[in-house]
Amino acid sequence: MAMLHTVNKSPFERVSLDSCISMAKKGSSVLLIEDGVYGALKGTKVADKVSKAMDGITFYVLGPDLAARGMTEERIISGIKVVDYAGFVDLTTKHENFQAWL
């Protein structure tokens, strides 16, 4: 079973992204939303951790939340896919269950 995880917290303030990565199984997906989108940025102190986790976990980031925060796709770790709300809905249907790391 493949699970969809969402993370909505900045990795610079909370451990949600860490906990999510350590409990997401290979084959699952992580969608970064709201303040969680900062975890998708290149050149940060958590970028290495995210890049390593991408070996086995697929990462997505919610585009409207990125744009709202002044971030463009060029600043995102390569391999992280940008989706809109329709894409968010699609991801929930394509995974068997869902966990929000609030």
Binding site: M1, M3, S22, M23, S28, F98, Q99
Partner: peptide, 18 residues
């Protein structure tokens, strides 16, 4: 361990976190 918890979580139909 977190790996064991990950396995358990994966078997669930509904996961809620508050």
């Amino acid at each position: 361990s977190r790996a064991q918890l990950a396995d358990l979580m994966n078997e669930q139909d509904v996961v809620m976190s508050f």
